[in-house]
């Protein structure tokens, strides 16, 4: 690894290295900035949550409202992630394995939800399904409640996490090409056999990576969900919304206690992400791409 030789003993001067003192200063700046903006807040969440003792911490988590918030968050993620998983695989299959007109436009459109403010994401569903919305009167007639109810929360969660899995899979499957699939078909495999036995094993890490990121966002989304939820305690509160309510009631210990669950989720996400990245790097090291010997 060339990186390891970058820091040279001070008496040796290498033309492609900075002087040792410059390197030290740069490292110090980077670490200070990261400690200030990432390390300190992360530490603060857990400190505030546990600072007044385990008793209060567990009490905040045992609150039935907290329980129902956790339940709702899990439900929303359990619907949004599989839905976007199926979509991501279908979109990537069409885009990576076939040539057709308008492909680039389609890729841009898939990325669209990332460009939309969370608040606007929630609002467009209110405009569609809200009491004064397009379909509002019709929905009321049939006694269907989407906005300020669980279905609305699930819908906006799907919207804000829409691109995650697709955008992981599209470049991956494009890079892998369709040679292996064509080989499978020429050996007599059917479409589904090719998909399950060749494509899925090849994209499993990318898939998992997308699922991890998608899930983190699905469970943590605040702005969009806040707009459509109506903040009904014990009914339409997700975990992030519950944190907001507790904080606004100046119940800081409880707020940070519940927040610490989400911070824990973030740490697990980062860990899982790192593991997948490590596995992918290991796999790609054993498979040389240039095949000349």
């Amino acid at each position: 690894m060339r990186n390891s030789s970058r820091l040279q003993p001070s008496h040796i001067k290498i033309a492609t290295c900075e002087p040792r003192i410059v390197a030290r200063i740069l490292i110090a700046i980077a670490l200070f900035y990261l400690a200030l903006f990432l390390g300190l807040p992360l530490f603060a969440v857990f400190y505030e949550a546990l600072g007044k003792g385990w008793e209060l911490y567990l009490e905040a988590l045992r609150d039935p409202d907290a329980g129902s918030a956790i339940e709702l968050t899990l439900i929303a993620a359990a619907i949004a992630v599989p839905a976007n998983l199926i979509f991501g695989v279908a979109a990537a299959w069409a885009i990576a394995k076939f040539e057709f007109r308008g492909k680039n436009l389609l890729i841009t459109l898939i990325d669209l939800p990332f460009a939309v403010s969370p608040v606007v994401s929630g609002m467009i569903y209110v405009l569609l399904f809200g009491a004064q919305g397009w379909l509002g009167p019709w929905l009321q007639e049939h006694d269907i409640k989407l906005i300020f109810a669980v279905p609305g929360i699930v819908l906006v969660t799907i919207f804000v996490t829409f691109p995650f899995i697709a955008r992981e899979l599209i470049p991956l499957m494009q890079a892998q090409g369709k040679d292996e699939e064509e080989a499978a078909v020429s050996l007599g495999a059917s479409g589904w056999q090719t998909f399950w036995r060749i494509t899925v094993p090849n994209i499993k890490w990318g898939l998992l990576y997308g699922v991890i990121l998608c899930n983190a966002r699905a469970m943590g989304e605040f702005g969009a969900v806040s707009v459509v939820s109506g903040h009904i305690r014990g009914m339409t509160n997700t975990v992030p919304l519950h944190v907001e309510i507790l904080y606004n009631e100046y119940n800081f210990v409880a707020a940070f206690s519940v927040a610490s669950l989400l911070a824990l989720l973030a740490l697990i996400t980062l860990l899982a992400k790192s593991i997948v990245e490590y596995r992918v790097r290991k796999d790609s090291q054993t498979i040389p791409h240039g095949e000349t010997e």
């Binding site: 040679d179 292996e180 064509e182 080989a183 499978a184 020429s186 036995r197 060749i198 094993p201 095949e291």
Partner: peptide, 10 residues
């Protein structure tokens, strides 16, 4: 069919 880059299932 034998492919140029083999297309072995990795």
């Amino acid at each position: 069919f034998v492919f140029q880059h083999y297309a072995l299932f990795r």
